[in-house]
Design a binder for these strands. Structure first.
Length: 274
DNA sequence: ATGGCGCGCGCAGCGCGA
């Protein structure tokens, strides 16, 4: 009984819907967190996604932000207990959605799935950077609370943090810049210390595999990227994770998102520890 | 490392992302 979980910042779902539908059809994904849908709920392409065989829950706002969770209908019950945003953090931006996903065949394997769009932070020392750090502090409190209630947790998303120098094409150029600064990296480590694992680092990985490349300067062609999109798995789920990677193929298309989807495969054959 | 990119909004050019 294996499940593939994934995350993708699509930078406008209106523009990227064909990419998402093709990727779902070709990649065998069971649950997908989306970020930067940039759609109000009234404009969300619910019918198209349901026709593709997925449950979907979503929350958006005009122009900016917006998150969603897709779950394959042949494998999961309707997503339950949907929560939008962090109850511990008053936020007028829509950057978080969580739901409980229950496998149809093994309902005892239900887990909490969160799609997160961490603020970008603009530049170190700006108001947006302060907001990012405050947002992350509140996220850590919330995840701690969630893990106490639900030991099976997958929190996926655009974290806008490259955790280590090996996640950066040019670490010296990015030293203490936004996405790579020490305070941001400490926040990422704080999440791991709660009992989450970075799925990508559970396995041997090739060097230079990133999840975001600037649209400018031919950054993708030159692989000048950062690994800022992550799947964080609670220890209970991390034990079941057999593979994890980034699929760079969608980034090669015409009119791509600047982010590539990241994924992890979980083998839930054995009963999971509580 | 700033831009030069691409998005939304809305119909020009700006805010924003990372």
């Amino acid at each position: 009984m294996s499940f593939t979980l994934a995350s993708w910042n699509v930078n406008s779902l209106r523009v990227r819907l064909p990419h998402v539908l093709e990727w779902l059809a070709s990649s065998d994904v069971d649950a997908l967190g989306l970020q930067e849908t940039k759609l109000i709920d009234a404009k969300f392409p619910r019918a198209e996604i349901e026709s593709a065989g997925y449950h979907v829950v979503y929350a958006g706002q005009p122009t900016y932000n917006g998150v969603a969770i897709l779950a394959k209908r042949s494998r999961f019950a309707e997503p339950a207990d949907v929560v939008v945003n962090n109850p511990l953090f008053a936020d007028d931006q829509v950057r978080l959605i969580g739901a409980t996903l229950t496998p149809l065949e093994t309902p005892q394997q239900a887990f909490r799935f969160i799609s997160a769009y961490v603020p970008n932070g603009a530049a170190v020392g700006t108001d947006k950077y302060d907001y990012k750090l405050r947002w992350l502090t509140a996220l850590t409190s919330y995840v701690k609370q969630q893990l106490a209630k639900t030991p099976r947790l997958a929190m996926v998303g655009d974290y806008n943090i490259a955790p280590e120098d090996r996640d950066v094409h040019d670490p010296e150029a990015w030293r203490e810049q936004v996405l790579c600064s020490t305070p941001e990296r400490e926040h990422f480590q704080a999440l791991l210390h709660l009992g989450l694992r970075d799925a990508f680092r559970l396995h041997d990985q090739p060097e230079g595999l990133y999840s975001w490349w600037d649209y400018r300067q031919g950054a993708f062609r030159r692989n000048r990227g950062l690994r800022i999109d992550h799947l964080l798995l609670s220890t209970a789920l991390a034990q079941a994770c057999t593979h994890s990677s980034v699929d760079v193929e969608p980034r090669k298309r015409e009119q791509p998102s600047d982010h590539a989807p990241v994924w992890a495969k979980l083998n839930l054959n054995q009963p999971l520890p509580i």
